[in-house]
Design a protein around this nucleic acid. Structure first.
Lengths: 347, 347
DNA sequence: ATCCTCTTTGCATTCGAAGTCATTTGTTCT
DNA sequence: AGAACAAATGACTTCGAATGCAAAGAGGAT
């Protein structure tokens, strides 16, 4: 009867599998399971000699604490969900790599969710709840109710390059408004008159913000502009350029793109499909500062997002909120840096 | 005394937190915890009326089964580790997105590990063991001992675009040899004589394989070539081109690059730094078929990897091995498709 | 040697769901 | 109505590590 109280060490714990448990190690070292547990816990009270013995046994048995079991008892999974909509966006891989490495450095693992379609969100969230993640970083469009669900469940979230629309949520963004203002001002000073704008998809937060900021500033400076919608990829930059050339009868001399990839598509299209010289005949500016923007053929004049500082902030904010869930939903805005390339004649 | 046997339902399980447990749901529905568990398990024996009652209670309490607890008892975490070295490689984001979505579709979650440096591998593996992942997909260079550790622990692995050097491991690769042969043959037929090759970093498996295949085939066809090493990025394509132009006194008329990104760097460099026409004066070919390779300015002649089929195979192989660990370490080789761009004059 | 304090250690319980087994309920057939 | 059997249900144990608590040990002071 008493036999059941202290579980038996697993019999299969030879040198083979990594399936050794703390009981196996305990038995091997001649101590209790508690001692083994303490031995792997930072700052717990274990005598040096005991610690040695236990660590030796652990090494011999190839023991690694079971994070699943730890998560169950401590109610801390040390998992953070990263939810990203379009990994193919050229800008996100860098962000993802940075976030992952920073979280790893803090002893936190990343559960990655990549959305193929927006309709997948609810399924993804279902899994997020099940895994009892400690927090989440979201670079995807969520409905207010979906954001509210995080609050309901007490799961801290930090949004990346978007804000909680209607719901107060912590977020990290690159300042679209000041970035676009800088671009517009430089273009106006550079003596441009017929402005075209390539917007992002309507459901993109940063896309709309950038275009709106550019439009406003142009208006303030007495310039009109034509706006055509793209969807952030290369092909849509090409298509939008053609459309704008048609609409302006080839008179457009400045083009503001909601991201670099469309700017690149537009530059190629202008040069190759229309024989237009960039920047002599047409100035093109983008946004983001992704790798290809700096390629010799493009050298796009753009706003470079401070990805390192932004990811650092996102991780820091999330960890803070995991420790202290009552913290307010701060919004941090980072200024981008105007990267003067050679795709635009500036003032 | 008897009170301790049946755990109390958690008191905090109001409609607020997502912290409800199966006991909360059980009490709410007036059934036992076992019933709740069965209710969420596919094909278990539960009366329709009971199921209704339980599901209603679960919905009301916002109950989601705790995957951590499930993982502990079932010894199946439903987690797969994806280990990737350089997410910034332009080719990997697509692979990662595909893998993640395919695994999700199979009810499996992705634990992402992104390596900043090769030295991180052991720390990463430490975490992989702790989380008791059901399997792993690896697109990073691992030492034989590190690969052996997976076998030791009975964790199935599938390598992506690399093979287990010395250790038999399941893998999915794109056929470098036939791809390079096709490129070389086409270039030779296109009347090229002075061949340059830009290799990848020495520690890249595919890089070495591609270059070696190209070199061999060139030799068989009676052509020599000069090889310069790059590191798969744009800047190294530029640098390598300069070096090759110096070495050949500007006489190089065909350039084989170990990946598209270096091909693009080389094309830009040739055009902009040397005023060379591509493909009139110099033919350039790459490998991978990444997005920018198809841009109007480049249209790189390359071998497109069948990413969808490869990721599908990787996931299928991994799942098979999770079910039946005794399966042999099959290697699957996928033929790439020659994508005739306009960066090379072919035969 | 005695008492007190501080450090180590082990015992027993806990986290939340799954699954075994025994029991109860329900159905069908005679 | 009762037998025979299947379906549904609940009690209890289990997975592996963390931790509160009590007991044991180690020093130190008197």
């Amino acid at each position: 009867m008493a036999a059941k109280k202290q579980p038996e060490a697993s019999q299969s714990a030879g040198t083979s599998g990594g399936r050794a448990t703390s009981y196996d190690v305990a038995r091997h070292a001649g101590v209790s399971q508690s001692a083994v547990s303490r031995c792997f816990k930072q700052g717990a009270s274990v005598a040096p000699r005991t610690r040695e013995k236990i660590l030796a046994a652990a090494r011999e048995l190839n023991y690694y604490p079971n994070a699943i079991a730890q998560g169950l008892i401590t109610r801390r999974s040390n998992l953070v969900a990263i939810i990203i909509s379009n990994l193919t966006n050229l800008y996100y891989p860098e962000v993802l790599a940075e976030l992952t490495q920073r979280l790893s450095a803090q002893g936190i693992r990343v559960l990655l969710f990549s959305l193929a379609a927006e309709s997948d969100v609810d399924e993804v969230l279902d899994q997020v709840w099940r895994y009892r993640v400690d927090g989440a970083i979201v670079a995807a469009r969520l409905h207010p109710e979906q954001l509210a669900a995080f609050a309901d469940r007490g799961v801290p979230v930090v949004l990346y390059n978007r804000i909680g629309e209607g719901v107060p949520v912590a977020s990290v963004c690159c300042d679209s408004v000041s970035g676009e203002h800088a671009l517009v001002e430089a273009l106006v000073e550079g003596e441009h008159y017929v402005f075209g704008v390539i917007a992002g998809p309507a459901d993109s937060y940063v896309g709309e913000e950038r275009v709106e900021a550019a439009r406003r500033r142009l208006q303030q400076l007495g310039r009109e502009c034509l706006i055509v919608r793209g969807n952030f990829d290369y092909a849509s930059g090409d298509a939008a350029l053609k459309e704008l050339m048609r609409m302006t009868d080839g008179k457009m001399d400045a083009l503001i793109c909601a991201n670099d990839l469309m700017a690149i598509g537009a530059i190629d299209s202008a040069r190759i499909n229309f024989g237009i010289e960039v920047p002599q005949d047409l100035s093109v500016v983008g946004f983001d500062g992704v790798g290809p923007a700096t390629w010799l053929a493009y050298q796009v004049t753009t706003i470079r997002q401070p990805v390192r500082r932004m990811t650092e902030a996102a991780v820091a904010m999330l960890l803070e909120r995991i420790e202290r869930p009552e913290l307010s939903p701060e919004q941090r805005l980072f200024a981008g840096e105007l990267l003067p390339g050679s795709s635009a004649r500036l003032g």
